[in-house]
C-alpha cells in the first residue's frame, strides 16, 4: 500500500499512506470547524448574559489582544517558512523556524494565562455568569489546542533530530503545520467576534 511512490510531488505526499494521512487530517480540521462553530454559537447566544459580573467592554484590553494576535500571526508565518524550508530540503532551516514557532506559541500562551488571571481577579471567572462561561470555554478551548500543538511540535522536533527528512517525518511536519495555521484561523475569528465585537457592543 505504502510503496507506490510518485516523484513529482513533495516528499510528504510521496507515499499513498502519506497522502491519506494529509487528507484525513484535513477532514479532521473540518470537524474541528464544526466544533469551534458550536462554541462560537454558544458564545453568541449567551452574549450579554453577564448577570452581575463585569461587562466584556470593561475588561477587554485592545493592546494585549493585538499583541497576542500579532504573535500568533507571526508564528503562523514562521511555521509556513518552516514548511518552505522543508520543501527546499533544508533540515536545519526547518528545525530553526519550527523552534521559533514554538517559542512564539509559548509566549502567546503566556499572554493568555496572564489575561485569564487578570479577568478572574476582576471578578469575571468561569462561574461568574453565562457570558463569562462562554468566553472562557471558547478561548480556553483554543488555548488547550495551542498547548497540545506545542507538545506535538516538540515530539516532532525530536523525531526530526533522530531521523532527518523522510517521507514520514515530512508528513508529520506538514500536518502539524496545517494544525498550527488552523489555530491561527480560529484565533482570527476569536479576535474579531469575541474581542473586537465585545469592545464595540
Amino acid at each position: 500500500m505504502s510503496e507506490n511512490k510518485t516523484d513529482a510531488l513533495p516528499l510528504e505526499y510521496s507515499t499513498h499512506q502519506g497522502q491519506m494521512n494529509i487528507v484525513g487530517f484535513w477532514i479532521f480540521l473540518a470537524a474541528e470547524i464544526a466544533l469551534f462553530s458550536t462554541l462560537f454559537a454558544t458564545y453568541a447566544v449567551l452574549f450579554g448574559r453577564t448577570a452581575d459580573s463585569p461587562a466584556p467592554a470593561e475588561l477587554f484590553e485592545a493592546g494585549t489582544v493585538l499583541i497576542m494576535t500579532f504573535i500568533l500571526l507571526t508564528s503562523s508565518f514562521t511555521c509556513g517558512l518552516a514548511i518552505h524550508n522543508m520543501r527546499e530540503g533544508s533540515l536545519k532551516g526547518l528545525m530553526v523556524w519550527l523552534a521559533l514557532t514554538l517559542v512564539l506559541g509559548l509566549s502567546f500562551l503566556g499572554f493568555e494565562i496572564y489575561e485569564f488571571v487578570h479577568y478572574v481577579s476582576e471578578g469575571a471567572a468561569l462561574g461568574s455568569s453565562a457570558f463569562w462561561s462562554g468566553f472562557f470555554v471558547l478561548t480556553g478551548t483554543h488555548g488547550v489546542h495551542v498547548t497540545l500543538g506545542i507538545g506535538w511540535m516538540i515530539a516532532i522536533l525530536i523525531q526530526l533530530k533522530q531521523r532527518g527528512l523522510t517521507a514520514v517525518t515530512t508528513r508529520k511536519v506538514f500536518i502539524v503545520g496545517l494544525y498550527w495555521h488552523f489555530l491561527d484561523v480560529i484565533w482570527i475569528f476569536i479576535f474579531t467576534s469575541v474581542y473586537m465585537i465585545g469592545m464595540v457592543v
Binding site: L35, T38, L39, T42, V45, L46, R49, T50, A51, L126, G127, S128, S129, A130, F131, S133, G134, F136, V137
Partner: peptide, 24 residues
C-alpha cells in the same frame, strides 16, 4: 461540545444551561 459544556456546568460550576447566572 454540548456534552462538554454540561460536564463543565455540573462539575466546574459554569452557567451554560443553568437557571442561575443568566444561563439558558
Amino acid at each position: 461540545v454540548a456534552l462538554a459544556l454540561m460536564t463543565i456546568d455540573r462539575i466546574f460550576g459554569s452557567h451554560f444551561f443553568t437557571l442561575t447566572g443568566e444561563g439558558l
